[in-house]
Amino acid sequence: MEITVTGANALAFPNLLVWDWRVALYLFLGGLSAGLAVMASVLHIRKGGALAEGETARYMAPLYVPIILGIGMFFIFLDLSNKLNVYWFYLTIQPLSPMSWGSWGLLAFFPLSGLFALAVLPDEKLHWLQLPQLQSLARWLRTYLRPLCYANLGMGIFIGIYTGVLLSSLIARPLWNSSILPVLFLVSALSAGAALMIMVAKKKEVKLFFTQVDILLIAAEMTLLPLFFYGQYTSSAAHRASIMPFFAFSHEYLWYGAAIILVGVILPFAMIMKLIEIREGHSHELTKDALFKMNLSAVLVLLGSLIIRFAFVYAGQLSQFS
């Protein structure tokens, strides 16, 4: 069969390319901040807050959430081709548009994560705030720490899911059009959040607790990924064709093949490292060697999460409904 198209737009032919690295990076950073928000809340809720005592991550992790989210939002802003109209996101609510939910969700999550970061700031760090009004606000917010904790946890889960729903609602792109994708993105976001928490935490008990959490999350991620591909393979011809870039292992799809191999190696490797970490008999203070291994496995998890976002954003645009 021979096809000639006169009047094709380069944006859509031979395949779509509307969302690039800026969107992929936003989805990663948005997911990471959401995951870290959930883990920071868990740290404060766990054992009635006893686990967080004497731990620098109890105020450093909540502080990183709005910073990471802000950087992510900057990249998605860069992607808008008509930036001056950005205020229109907040002059309407479109219930069928996940991007509309997301923009409203971010409007709630960003200040909420900031308030949470203020509420958990200890007395000895209040001087960071400079302004006495902010210091008074931080002290006042401490009385609402528990509700803030739960709200932060809920919004973290919402943002983690939304980054996947954003893609999965598009029938025109079969790779994204799967209900497993939002769950996969949420689990990947939580896993990345736990990994960053391990890097930020100083206490051995906290590091080991989040290592255990991350093992479960990586196991869930490693179950969801094959299930996703299996679901696509057994669906329509377009869905089956949509996953081929990952498994063609040809020159044309080199990066997609490399991505699936990397994720297939990185995640199990990180999980094995973590399993060894929790079984090892650690001294009261973690040795340099143990800290290196923990940080390395956490970096691998973050890398896996980043690769998943980039691979899915680009491969999804290769897939077509017809």
Partner: peptide, 12 residues
Amino acid sequence: CVGCKACIAACP
């Protein structure tokens, strides 16, 4: 229009 391009990606 903010130029988010969701409509372009959504159109089959």
